[in-house]
Amino acid sequence: MNHQDVVAQLVTILTPLAEGRVTVIDGTTELTGQLALDSLKVMDLMLAVEDDFDISVPINAIAEVRTVGDLATQIQKIQQGAGQGA
């Protein structure tokens, strides 16, 4: 998957969680800032993301994630790592 495809899939997951706080979600949207997700909600979001992409995202990998785009980059790294290991 390319970066834009991952972002698009994340936007689909995030839209119901945004509860109308932002009108447009894209790669630059901040998870805790603009979407106002607290740390607990971000952790629960990750469980949904893991299921959707069929990957496991370690907690330590999301420490530096600020935006939807950052998360997409982490997901791509994990997908590429899994691909190399297979």
């Binding site: 952790m43 990750m46 469980l47 496991s56 995202v57 370690p58 907690i59 330590n60 990998a61």
Partner: peptide, 14 residues
Amino acid sequence: IYDGCKLSGANTIR
């Protein structure tokens, strides 16, 4: 448990 994982530096998956 969360803090133990952090101290370990291990990949932590919930």
